[in-house]
Design a binder for these strands. Structure first.
Lengths: 200, 200, 200, 200
DNA sequence: CATGAATGAGCTTTCATTCAT
DNA sequence: TATGAATGAAAGCTCATTCAT
């Protein structure tokens, strides 16, 4: 790998870093290219040298955010322990770098909003969520196989767990004071595993 | 109440109806006032007669969407039955007018994205979610009181249920083919109430 | 015809008048929309209210310039007299409003330059030149029929006359001091009609 | 002459060749330096090493195009024969390398359009046309002196002949299907020499 | 109340030119 | 000489908002 490529990649990341900050602060459409220029410390021409449009920057950022997330998820799935501990382990892993989350979550919701209208963004998010879902389904199925869990439908359970995580993220965005991101995911997951019904 | 006011209200609703369609299709920032003008069949001057800015329309629409939702929720909370049936009843109620949901969900996510940046939108959504949360907490607490449910923390349960609903909505937006909105909420809620763990 | 339409047409002409001046002075591509804005006394938004792009203004101006010219030509073709007098009459007619010519000729050459690359401009000019050609061919053919002229190919003669006019225009643009636009067309046409060869 | 200069000249010509292609295709102002870079196979820095600006390239190309043409013209003027044959010989000579003409004509019209606005371009073209004019005037005057031609004004005749050539070129650019460049110049010139009028 | 032409600040994007390597 | 990443001053165009009628 020539050093040139690294310089090029570094520039692209420098731009995406700036874009992430600006998008989180102002949203995709409120963000002006000049804001990203100012935040990046580069010139406008340079931004357009590396990305052919604002939309290109958005898409590349989407790619990077979810790719990084997916890599983390996949490296976290091969933990040992009971199903409930492994699922909670995933959430702990995600919650670990909280500063990072706080930085990216507003962008994530921008993506969700855009996804409802733009096919290629929706497809990207779909694949991410399906990968997430597959990992969870796998863990749950193993729990069923080892008779830790009841013979429920692993797919439905995985869907529910994904929904809980994404839903909690949303609640946290809207009402950070009432949702403690360090404890709530684990609490919700344990409730799901233990059930609410009184055992007679 | 003079008839004048009714005409005024009718015009405002006509505009908000058009705005809802355009916002759902294009998003808040991609939507141009001219698009709303075209969709409403009114003139641009008339739009500005009833709303002083585009932001005003967004806020009024937010008000209307969540007010309607809240009224439905509150009328649905006084049902009879077990806690699980009442919670599921809520979701059934919400799912009832599915066409309406499909129309409004993209807008809802627009609001969530905006909420991460705009205080007054965030406060509005927070109040809506807190009202939603309170209703669920109430039902769960009654379930605990009647010994239908284990003595869990009703607040955490309500949070989890809200997260499940909002999370499923998000999954549906991104991947409508894999999430059946008519059955999935009930399935997830039953999983939560019954728990996943094998009873020893 | 409602007065509204006239106001609209007046605005369009106001813009095209300004564009003609700016294009003549700076050329199509050197001319900035802001220059036309300044020259027209209108605002930028108004220009874009009446024409959807700079290209649109160019095309509309082309339309107007050559349409006006064609109307003049066609009204001039029904004169009486010998073929040579009628052809010279055409040129006199064209030369009449010399200020107008001096204003439009630079634009005309812009059009010719663009025509070599843009199909729809070329087609437009082609039709104009063909109309011009048809009028001349008609006059020449009548001259042949009345035995004023030798039985030459009227089509080739018309082509030659059009070439002389267009060529002289070009020479005048490049070297106005040596080409007297008030006398040269008539001189050249008389040379063509009388021939150069000494009669033996 | 050191070999260095030849390499330099070769590079300059390589750039001008590329520029000619790009300018013919896109026009001066639509052509981007990057297009010339791509067409030349050189780098952008190299272009700016040999020419200090885009305008410099345009001027150098103008110089080269008309210098070549003038050299051809001047070498063609010393032919033998009658005046009409010598004038036609000039056009035959010009028409000989037709591919070259087809390539350069669109650029020529670019130059004419620019000439109407830029003094130094206009002066250049004026000198070219005057040289062209002088050669023709010379031939015609010799025709008069040898009593082949009537005692007309040789200057006016030369002007008319130049106009015919330039005018036909213009007609050909706009309507190549109706103007046969291999025959039309000769036809028009013969018409001019023989005259249209019926001899009584 | 209703209209739609008019406004202009602000946006994304382009591209001739420069310069460190 | 040669390269191509970097620059930034424009350019074309948009669109929320206003206001004369």
């Amino acid at each position: 790998m020539s050093p040139r490529i690294n310089v090029s990649e570094a520039r692209k990341n420098q731009i995406l870093d700036a874009a992430a900050i600006v998008f989180a602060r102002q949203g995709f459409y409120q963000a002006r290219m000049d804001d990203i220029v100012a935040e990046s410390g580069l010139s406008k021409g340079t931004l357009y040298w590396y990305f052919k449009s604002k939309d290109d920057i958005i898409t590349a950022l989407l790619q990077r955010v979810f790719d990084e997330d997916l890599i983390q998820l996949q490296s976290a799935q091969h933990t040992a322990g009971s199903a409930v501990e492994r699922v909670i382990g995933l959430s702990r892993h995600i919650a670990a770098d909280f500063t990072e989350i706080a930085r990216l979550v507003p962008i994530t919701f921008e993506f969700y909003a855009v996804a409802s209208r733009q096919e290629h963004i929706r497809i990207f998010l779909k694949e991410y969520l399906q990968a997430y879902h597959a990992i969870l389904q796998n863990i749950v199925q193993q729990g069923i196989d080892t008779q830790e869990l009841r013979p429920v439908d692993a797919k439905d359970v995985a869907t529910t767990i994904v929904a809980i995580y994404e839903g909690l993220l949303l609640l946290w965005v809207v009402d950070a004071e009432h949702i403690d991101w360090h404890t709530q995911p684990e609490i919700s997951i344990r409730l799901l595993f233990d059930g609410l019904r009184r055992l007679l």
